[in-house]
Each structure stands twice: as structure tokens, then as C-alpha cells.
Design a protein around this nucleic acid. Structure first.
Lengths: 238, 238
DNA sequence: CCCTTTTCACCTAGGTGGTAAGAT
DNA sequence: ATCTTACCACCTAGGTGAAAAGGG
């Protein structure tokens, strides 16, 4: 079994319509001491400027076989076949193609702006998965503490070669979490069929954006992400 | 086989007589939000103030079975049964117990001070080992890039409960590196006897200290450790 | 006196949204 | 209108030796 952590924070975001930033900026890097090694000796990898998710997707696992090996991974599936835009209704210049889309309650709104369907989805990006970097590990290890996918990064660069998750901006996605049992008896290359369980937490769905649209989302990110503490105004709420 | 990385830097330190800082400061921590979790969700562990080694011990491996599992670890053995002090000869007030100790060449000196034997060693601290945190892993993984023991920390706290390496200050040590082959056939609990290879690089031996004694060591640390860049004077040498 | 502990300024490394300018 | 690029101030997190203070 898997329990989503920080559930109340996810729900708070979901009530407003979660947005996640996606950026390009892969390896290329204009002028970097290419090929050099950092002092530590590990081969130099320029910092990818792609963004993490916030809130971070993290789960508490239970019921695994403590002595068996498991691989943990995530992927992201489109929630619908629409492309969206953020704004006010198009002032009567004709029928809006997706106002009040059934999947987007009217609560995803701020002042007079809201998310509106704006055509069909872009062709789906290459489906990528993100393996938790501790994989594979024993069930006991996974259950010992909360499993955090804080190394997962999002990009809208279709040519990304850093193994990040590729998403289309202005499209909606549902994160999925998979536990793969590494069966030592069978050939481990094809871990298909029975040997995995999948989890989808609806409160973690989000809109991919290149810049925040809903100011309430921006404010909630600033209020709850420690790295954005520099943008907080004053009176902190415990 | 294992090749020591940063060999020339190690030798430069060894020519002066390498010193490594050891500190106490384990978990205790005067007033810390104990039991709390950090926002990431991983259980909160106060930062241990113990110090890493510099230079970092790192090796390039070759000749492993790419598909077999290996555990990599380090330990530290006393180089002799002496305790040392840093200073000038005791001005003819009697025979110095260890001046010009055969194991400490006269080049380990600065101005008129040098390392002098000052009695027998303290009772040996509990012998601990440091497992490389990526252990166990396949031979292919270990050989793919340089293996760096940059998580290894030294302490002089005999009661340390963070799993750090416990050393006595003012004693000399030889780091050792071990490759343990995890044989899947036998019971893996006792990986003794044939299934491991050990490596000792003499240029990595050092004196444990609570504060640097030889100013030339201090200056070389400042010149070569990026984290000490704040103490560099001017003209950098490429 | 020698050795240890504590605190500090100054770094590395990297995660935030803001802003402005430009591109499509 | 949306997206890209670049740069910024401000954070978290943690690795340095210096200097002062403490302890035998």
C-alpha cells in the first residue's frame, strides 16, 4: 500500500488548480568549462535548470516484502485531450470552445480569469518514466522512511537528453506512481504483467505552465515552499 | 584493481605531513526542533558537524565483474603505537622520548617545530568501518566513474552514534580501502576470507588533529579546497 | 602550557519567483 | 498571447579555517 504524504497541502493546491512550471534549458549551457571535472572527481554535469515539482511527490509505503527488491518509478499521463489557456471569456466574439469544461470546476478561477479549453492537445510528448534513484532496494529500505521524488524534474524540451519528464505546457497531467517487484526467478528484463502495482492520487493532478497564471497558486507556492521564503511579505502563519 | 585519484595532491600533502581535523559534535545538538520532519518529508537528522577528509579519498576501479555485486568500504588503522605532539625540541631538559622518530622524517617540520613522539598511544578507539553509501552495486556501476568517499566523516567522540569513523587526536592513521565481492551462492552474512581485496595507499596516511599544527598544511588546504576559498589571499595559481 | 570546543564570516551548490527583453 | 532567455535577490543546506573561549 502507498499513502500520499503532505495530502492536505496537495488538496489546498488542488482546490485552486495546481500549476507546475516547466522549462527548457537542458545540457547545452552557453559557456561552461566543458569536459572538466569538478574537484570531487565526479564527472562534471552542468546543473539542469529544469524545475522540480512543488509540492514534492512523496509516499509512505507499507506491506512490502522486507527482503525483496523493488523498483519505484513515476510517470505522467494526460488528463484529457485538450489544450488550455488562462483568461477571461472571449467577450461574445463567438462560442468559446471549452468554457466551463466539465473537468475544470469553476473554482479554478481568480478574479474574472479562469482556465478555458482552447483546442485539441498537442501530440503527446515521448512517454518517459522517472526511476527513483535509490532503485532497486529492499522493501525494508523503502518502508523505513518516506520515499521522496525530489530529484524528479519537469521540462517542455522535446529533445531533452537529461532524462527529465517531458510535458506540454498548458496541458493537464496526472502523476502516477508504480512499485515494481523485481522477481529474481524470472528474467528480470521484462518486469511486466503481474509484478507491479500502480497508484494515482487525483489531488496531485496539475496544469503544466511556463509561468504561473493563477496568482493564488503563486502565493500558495511562496507561502509553503521554503526556497521561496525570500518572497514572503510578513506575518507567518504557523 | 584500484587506482588512487588526485594522487599528486595527496603526495603534496604527504610531503608536508597530512593532517585531518577531527571534531566531536554528534547528534545531541543543544536546541533543535527534535522529532520534526523537514518539508521534504525525510526524517529530520540534524547536520553532524563532524568533518570530512580533504583531500577526499577517491579511487578508479577496474577489473571487476560487471554483473556481480560488490560492497565498498573503508577503515583506518593506527600507523604506530605512539602519541604525538607538535612543537620544538624540549630544550635539553632531558632526553626527548621520540625526537626524530624513524617513521616521521624531518621534512614534517615548519620553522623550528615538528612532530615529536610524546608517549604511547591511547587505547584504540572502537574499530569502525564506513560503507560507501551506494553499496551494494554492480561492478559495472562502480567502474563507470570515480568512486568518491565524500560522505565519510571523522570524529574524536568515542560515544559517537552517527556511524562516523572514530579516531584519536594526535595519532597517525592509514586509510584502507576494501572491495567485497557479494557471493550469491554462499550465505552472504559472512563475507570473509577470499571474497575481498584490500588496498592501502601510503600517500594517504595522516595525523588526526583537533586544530591544524603545521601552517604549511593549513595553507595547502586553503589553496586546494574550494570550500576554503574565502581564506585565499590573492594571486591564484592555475 | 597544550589541546579542545564553540562560534563566526565566507565560501560552494542549488532551489525560489520576479522582472525585463526578446522570439514565435 | 504565449513562450523563451537571461539575470536577479533571496532563500536552504552545508563545507571551510580563523579566532576566541574553555579545560586539563
Amino acid at each position: 500500500a502507498a499513502r500520499l504524504e503532505m495530502g492536505s497541502l496537495w488538496e489546498e493546491f488542488n482546490r485552486l488548480g495546481t500549476e507546475m512550471i516547466v522549462t527548457k534549458a537542458g545540457r547545452w549551457e552557453p559557456e561552461w568549462p566543458g569536459g572538466l571535472q569538478r574537484w570531487g572527481g565526479t564527472p562534471f554535469l552542468p546543473p539542469s535548470l529544469c524545475r522540480r515539482m512543488f509540492p514534492t511527490f512523496q509516499v509512505k509505503l507499507s506491506g512490502l516484502d522486507p527482503l525483496a527488491d523493488y523498483v519505484l518509478l513515476m510517470d505522467f499521463i494526460p488528463l484529457d485531450d485538450k489544450r488550455y489557456r488562462w483568461g477571461r471569456d472571449n467577450g461574445g466574439r463567438g462560442p468559446d470552445p471549452g468554457a466551463l469544461s466539465p473537468s475544470l470546476p469553476c473554482r479554478y478561477a481568480f478574479h474574472s480569469s479562469s482556465w478555458l479549453a482552447a483546442g485539441r492537445a498537442e501530440p503527446a510528448a515521448p512517454g518517459r518514466v522517472h526511476f527513483h534513484p535509490d532503485s532497486p532496494a529492499k522493501g525494508a529500505q523503502w518502508m523505513r522512511q518516506i520515499v521522496s521524488f525530489d530529484k524528479l524534474k519537469l521540462t517542455n524540451n522535446l529533445l531533452d537528453d537529461n532524462g527529465h519528464i517531458i510535458l506540454n505546457s498548458m496541458h493537464r497531467y496526472q502523476p502516477r506512481f508504480h512499485i515494481v517487484f523485481v522477481d529474481p526467478r524470472r528474467d528480470s528484463e521484462r518486469f511486466a504483467h503481474q509484478n507491479f502495482k500502480s497508484f494515482s492520487f487525483p489531488e496531485t493532478q496539475f496544469m503544466a505552465v511556463t509561468a504561473y497564471q493563477n496568482h493564488r497558486i503563486t502565493q500558495l507556492k511562496i507561502a509553503s515552499n521554503p526556497f521561496a521564503k525570500g518572497f514572503r511579505d510578513g506575518d507567518p502563519e504557523p
